[in-house]
Simulated scan of single mutants.
Amino acid sequence: MEFDLFKEWFTLENIQELLSEYRSFGPLPGIILPMLEAFIPILPLVVFIMANAAAFGLWMGFIYSWVGACGGALIVFFLVRKYGQKRFFSFVSRHGKIKKLMDWIERHGFGPLFLILCFPFTPSSAINLVAGLSKIKTSQFVLAVLCGKLVMVFMVSFIGYDVRALFQQPIRTAIAAIIIVILWLVGKQFEKSFAQAPLKKTNE
């Protein structure tokens, strides 16, 4: 019950009030909130990005969200990459689905990883963790995160910059809805193709 209440609190209105209350801290709240999502997957990254755009303006809100989202992703990646041989991560990496995702990331590299990170509904926290456990080149992952998050954060920021316009301008609302549906469908196709991919055999 408390968990449900915790999730329900993270609405656009509540986050905007939070940012307004701590405006004296400058850009820090706008950066920290998207960064936290990399560590706590249940947090709504899309809501944070929209609230930043509404509170700080389109461009500054976009920059704060992008810095926070990329910073959180890279911190998780480097922590897992450094401590990936520890008992917990070693256990996680032996899980069938995790091994399959690790293999997929290693085989496909930058391109598909970039595309996946462009989608606002991708479980990026899991991607960061598994990428850290995989053997993907650090430069590939960093570039994919910086570029993929750039596209995703700007798109969501553009939608969240003026939420009222979504209700007052039907054409803009329809375009935004179509974009979201397309991204959701494409993301599902990636998820389906990954689930059907064969698991690479490893020597025990």
Rank of each mutant, 00 (worst) to 15 (best):
P34R: 06
K137N: 07
F91L: 15
F190Q: 06
N128A: 08
V142G: 06
K86F: 10
A55G: 07
M50R: 05
L143H: 06
P44C: 01
V46T: 15
G187M: 05
F62Y: 15
E191Q: 14
I75G: 00
G132W: 01
I171Q: 13
R172Q: 10
P27D: 11
T11A: 05
R81D: 03
Y161T: 04
K86T: 13
E2V: 12
I171A: 15
V186L: 15
S157M: 02
P29V: 05
P123N: 05
F167C: 02
Y64W: 08
W9Q: 09
F78A: 13
K149P: 00
L199P: 05
I32T: 10
K149W: 00
F110H: 09
K135L: 10
I32W: 02
P120K: 03
H95A: 14
F190T: 11
K97Q: 13
F119N: 09
I127V: 14
K86C: 07
M102E: 10
A177V: 15
L129V: 14
P123A: 00
I75N: 03
V80N: 00
A38H: 02
G111V: 06
A144V: 06
P29T: 07
L183A: 13
Y161I: 10
F114N: 01
P120R: 02
K82D: 03
E37S: 08
T11P: 05
V67I: 15
A177I: 14
L74W: 03
S124G: 12
K201R: 13
K200P: 03
F25A: 12
L18H: 09
L129A: 09
L129F: 06
F56I: 02
L79S: 09
V130G: 00
V181C: 10
A69M: 05
D4E: 15
R94P: 09
V145F: 06
V156Q: 05
I178A: 14
G160R: 04
I105V: 10
A54Q: 12
F121C: 01
P41G: 06
K86H: 13
I75H: 01
A38R: 05
L185K: 12
I175Y: 01
F121P: 02
A165R: 12
R172A: 07
L101A: 09
N203V: 13
G57I: 03
I180K: 06
L199Y: 09
F141V: 00
K99Q: 13
G84F: 00
L45C: 08
I98E: 04
R94C: 10
I98V: 15
G26S: 04
I175G: 02
G109D: 03
V92F: 11
A38Q: 07
L43R: 05
I75L: 11
T138R: 14
L113D: 10
L150R: 02
S93P: 02
K201V: 12
V47T: 11
S124Y: 07
M1Q: 15
I75F: 08
P27K: 03
N128L: 08
Y161H: 13
V80R: 01
P29Q: 07
S93A: 14
G57L: 01
F10W: 10
P112T: 11
F6Q: 09
L33Y: 07
F121A: 10
F25K: 04
K188D: 12
D162W: 02
V151W: 04
V80C: 01
V186C: 12
G187N: 04
L33F: 11
R94A: 14
L18K: 07
G111F: 14
